[in-house]
Nucleic acid binder design. Structure first.
Lengths: 189, 189
DNA sequence: CCTCTAAAACCGACTGGACGGTACAAAAAC
DNA sequence: GTTTTTGTACCGTCCAGTCGGTTTTAGAGG
């Protein structure tokens, strides 16, 4: 059963995606959530707290799910587990409101961006570290960022099929250049 | 000599980059521009008009410069002129406030995003069309978007040198797969 | 099962300040 | 002297946050 707080956060995400951040008032959130302003402010002490709530929820969710999946892939001995996990998580959020809302809200002020800059740099380093060619690592990273970027700005989404194909190709290239593959190659010498 | 309107737009960009959109009031803009509220509102009829002004300026500037450069490269017979031009323009805007301000403002409401969605899809199609492999075309596109994304969100910028290296690599691969190259190869058969 | 009580959750009128926009005066430019 | 541009005081609206009140829930006692 979804908590009230989560129900409110959902409402915020929906509103932001449809109308942007300028019309995002507590009254509007309350109406969208089907409750009163008092109710919203009972669950979140201030508007700032509410916005932080939206961002933190997405960030922790993405973080946890990505690492969980990555761990599973590592156990299976697959190359580039974090890169694979990142792509997978992206696909799961592809039709959802969370990424767009995250971006729109973060743009409002530095304190909010800070909430997920860390995660981005963290994933960035992790992905780079599993690919031996640093340039290739960077490319993978930027491709993922690009995907989120286009989703956030509603720019011509390519079809799910095309994305799958693209991901496959990237993974194929990356796996050949993974640290793991390199070690194997060296062992073969 | 810079016009007053442009001077004001500069002030908006600066403010947005430092404090985000939430504290972006006409009073603040006036102070930053070193003039009074009346002066700002004389040049831009409303706040909305002001925000549109910022976005339109960047969009038209990027559009014109990209096409101009692309045309020049086409004359020189270089492969993938638009892709090259896009990278070049990105590099020129790399330390500037414009891209970040653009995204932050656009996130505020749909009407503002619309101002540059067209340009993005347009460039997207153009780049895709000059690369024979559609997946590769998409990848190039996403890499550029990713670069802007990271700049907009102040996420760990890789060094200029690293970016040059990355761009070179992408161009190398793309040029081999350009329509031009394909035609040459077919002619050789 | 019902009653009472207290806490938790929620409601909505109200307030105080901020902010967009207006009106008009003042100054500058031409 | 006329037009363009800028300054300033002001108005009306909007909106975050408060606060007293109401409903709902949970539990204890009978």
């Amino acid at each position: 059963m979804e908590t009230t707080a989560e129900h409110i956060l959902d409402a915020v995400e929906r509103l932001v995606c449809i109308e942007g951040t300028r019309k995002l008032t507590i009254d509007a959130v309350a109406a969208e959530a089907g409750m009163s302003k008092g109710g919203v402010l009972y669950n979140f002490r201030s508007k700032q707290e509410l916005l932080l709530g939206v961002i933190r929820r997405v960030v922790t969710e993405v973080r946890e799910r990505t690492y969980a999946l990555s761990d599973k892939l590592t156990e299976q001995g697959v190359a580039c587990p974090i890169l694979r996990a990142s792509f997978q998580i992206y696909k799961e959020y592809r039709e959802k409101t969370a990424p767009k809302a995250l971006f729109a809200l973060a743009a409002q002020e530095p304190e909010l961006v800070a909430e997920f800059q860390d995660m981005s740099t963290e994933f960035g380093r992790a992905i780079s570290s599993e690919i031996s060619d640093p340039v290739l690592g960077h490319m993978c990273l930027l491709i993922i960022d690009g995907l989120y970027y286009r989703q956030a700005l509603d720019i011509e989404h390519c079809s799910a099929g095309e994305i799958d194909e693209l991901i496959d190709r990237v993974l194929e290239i990356s796996s050949q250049n993974s640290r793991h593959a390199v070690l194997n190659a060296e062992a073969g010498n």
